[in-house]
Design a protein around this nucleic acid. Structure first.
Lengths: 256, 256
DNA sequence: CAATACGTTTCATAATGTGAAACATTAAAA
DNA sequence: TTTTAATGTTTCACATTATGAAACGTATTG
């Protein structure tokens, strides 16, 4: 089984997840042989589990006995996230923001010590920043991640720093707890965060938080652009987009 | 367990799928009690399976012990479908088509005797046709479905008619094998299909097939609009969009 | 046509998941 | 606050369940 796959108390589920994962990693459809080799499972075992998953539409098999991920996953993914269907609500606003700034717009959720990219709107340009949906990044190297750390409080940030070691991805990464905390505080105070080539050289971001009716930060919205194109004039636009999505989730900003 | 949930050779997988399904059906996050009641599983069993699924990020649980679907499903859903990432390739073209015609654009896959809606682009209008991602419709009442039946040949259509009984959804539904076959033949000949209020009164569609490098029809693209707004002038636009997506999948149209 | 490779089924085996019951924790009521 | 109820969690003896080696089909290839 892949080293990154965690182990749970139920073997079959670990194996089923490993198989689906292997299938997701494959560029195209995959045969039983490939999948059993990839996961280290006995072909017989792999075959039985794959048959069970097919039964439920999680995976499809064509007439050539090649497996691919099934549409049932789409059905489920449409229901992922905070209560309401955040992605469907966010989509039109994200497209609006993308058209305003002409750069990539991403929607992220916090998942442990990382942010996960769950939705995106990409401009039609030759050079652009492109995140893969489902991919992850550490909290301390993304604009939205820093705001999420700010939500959890300074103690949680210290905990995070201890746990992760604040690995530096570029020379600009806030790799010291003090620098990071200062950045977080100013970001939180002004209501938006920047990422100045902290995750990857040449890429800059502007991020804000999305809140639901309870006031909790349920997601983040950000614009990612090549550093030399990024403009401070976009900040109010990003904030406006964030407000629109939050409003549609029922968020009531506290009276000023 | 829910009546619609099929049974496979592996009990745990059936139960895990039933639990995720139950979670997907809930409007918001759900407790262990609700989920075990919903699936008929012993709380202890449900708890163990949910813990295993959490371990893999398929579901999340918050501090109040409420479960919700996890972002790992998004990661997988991004990889669903034919070989390459069809949805990501189709998305910009779908948005283009939506802006051209000002109506909803859908991307569908065939799944057994149904089409599944896997991606959509929705216009910003008050009245519009809106499909839920992951939802299904019978082949014989959709434009794309009829083209897919045409791909499989007249015998397969006869089989389909026998199997399903060609249930009529409106007065316009092609509920007789002869009528359906005639419609399929003309649609196939001209390279696009119409749905004239055959699934729902007041809704009309224009659909085309998407082909990959091997020439196989891997998906369908359609515009759905209120019947009184639908225009024949859109047909070449839909065809153009279909051609663009097919081209990006490596499809080479046969020399004329 | 033979040979090989891949997919599928069988079946004895024990490892695996099960669920009743005891325990822990949280929320509500007194 | 203390008591009670309700929900969530862990344990553990048990047998059901998933396992995988091997035998059997069935395409694919030389």
């Amino acid at each position: 089984m892949s080293p990154e796959t965690p182990a749970s108390a139920i073997q079959v589920i670990d194996r089923a997840v490993a198989l689906i994962d292997a299938l997701a990693r494959e560029p195209g459809p995959a045969s039983l042989k490939i999948l059993s080799a990839e996961t280290g499972l006995h072909p017989s075992t792999a075959h039985r589990i794959l048959a069970a998953l097919s039964e439920h539409g999680l995976i499809d098999r064509d007439s050539a006995n090649l497996y691919r991920l099934g549409p049932r996953l789409l059905e489920w993914s449409g229901r992922v996230s905070a209560g309401q269907d955040l992605r469907q609500i966010a989509r039109p606003v994200m497209e609006w923001l993308r058209d305003q700034v002409g750069e990539s717009v991403n929607l992220t959720l916090r998942e442990g010590d990382q942010v996960v990219y769950v939705e995106r709107a990409i401009p039609n340009r030759m050079m652009r920043v492109e995140q893969v949906i489902g991919s992850r990044a550490p909290l301390h190297v993304t604009a939205v991640g820093k705001l999420m750390l700010g939500e959890a409080g300074a103690d949680a940030t210290k905990e995070y720093a201890r746990r992760t070691g604040l690995r530096a991805y570029t020379v600009n990464t806030r790799a010291k707890a003090g620098t990071l905390q200062k950045d977080i505080d100013t970001s939180r105070a002004r209501g938006y965060a920047l990422d100045d080539e902290e995750a990857e050289l040449g890429v800059g971001c502007i991020g804000v938080l999305i809140r639901d009716a309870s006031g909790a930060a349920v997601a983040g919205l950000s614009v990612s652009a090549p550093m030399e194109r990024r403009q401070t004039a976009w900040i109010p636009l990003v904030q406006e987009a964030g407000r629109r999505i939050s409003a549609r989730l029922g968020y009531q900003p506290p009276a000023a």
